[in-house]
């Protein structure tokens, strides 16, 4: 594999992997509990089990290998975490009990932080969703669907619109967002949490 992290000239032992411990450690430290990332034996249970595996750039285990090899750019620019559907099949089947799904979340947030998220639709969907949650305290399906579709049209605008009309007709979507009473309190909490996270 072609990498930017790999040095061009041979280096003495100990120098090659300078990037590795810090990136690996960062991922481990920012995954809740014990991620067990270093326990992966590359058996492929994750990649075999994954419902969106065929559409991923890399199997989860390959991403873990990149993380362990210090190939930060390659790991963060892979579409793999963005195609994770959070079904946890890999996590419960993993013979080494690696917390695969949780590590995927950590990789996504790191990729956004570093401006390397490759799957724009996924990133924007997450961000749009979060935007509504922070604005109203609840998600707002109609707003989400329209705002997201205007930019990304995963299923084409016409189809999305007809689906929306259907939802309205069935009484399954609201035209206005629901707002929680103490949205100010929620914002204070989230603001503080973000501040704490940035301190790291």
């Amino acid at each position: 594999m072609n990498t930017t992290a790999e040095p061009a000239a041979p280096v003495r032992e100990g120098e090659a992997a300078t990037a590795e411990p810090s990136f690996l450690r960062w991922i481990e430290n920012n995954t809740p509990g014990d991620s067990r990332l270093i326990m992966c034996i590359q058996c492929g249970t994750c990649g075999g089990s994954c419902p969106s595996g065929p559409d991923m750039d890399h199997s989860p285990r390959q991403v873990f290998a990149m993380v362990r090899a210090g190939l930060k750019d390659e790991a963060l620019s892979s579409n793999t975490p963005w195609y994770c559907v959070s079904c946890y099949l890999c996590t419960v089947r993993c013979p080494q009990e690696v917390h695969i799904t949780d590590i995927m979340y950590t990789l996504k947030s790191k990729a956004i932080e570093e401006g390397m998220a490759q799957v724009d639709a996924a990133k924007v969907w997450s961000e749009t969703f979060i935007g509504y949650v922070e604005e109203y305290g609840r998600s707002f399906e109609l707003g989400l669907a329209t705002r997201h579709n205007i930019r990304h049209r995963p299923m084409g605008m016409t189809r999305a619109a007809s689906l929306g009309v259907g939802m309205l007709a069935k009484g399954r979507i609201d035209l206005t967002p629901q707002v929680i009473e103490d949205v100010g309190q929620l914002r204070l909490i989230l603001w503080k949490a973000k501040e704490l996270e940035a301190e790291q």
Binding site: S109, W125, S126, R138, L186
Partner: peptide, 25 residues
């Protein structure tokens, strides 16, 4: 009373501690 969104799978994709603070509320 006055519960807020759990963040689905999205909040955790962007933030870590804030995602748990959201649920923590």
């Amino acid at each position: 009373e006055d519960w807020n969104c759990c963040g689905a799978t999205e909040y955790m994709s962007v933030y870590r501690a804030p995602a748990h603070a959201l649920v923590g509320r």
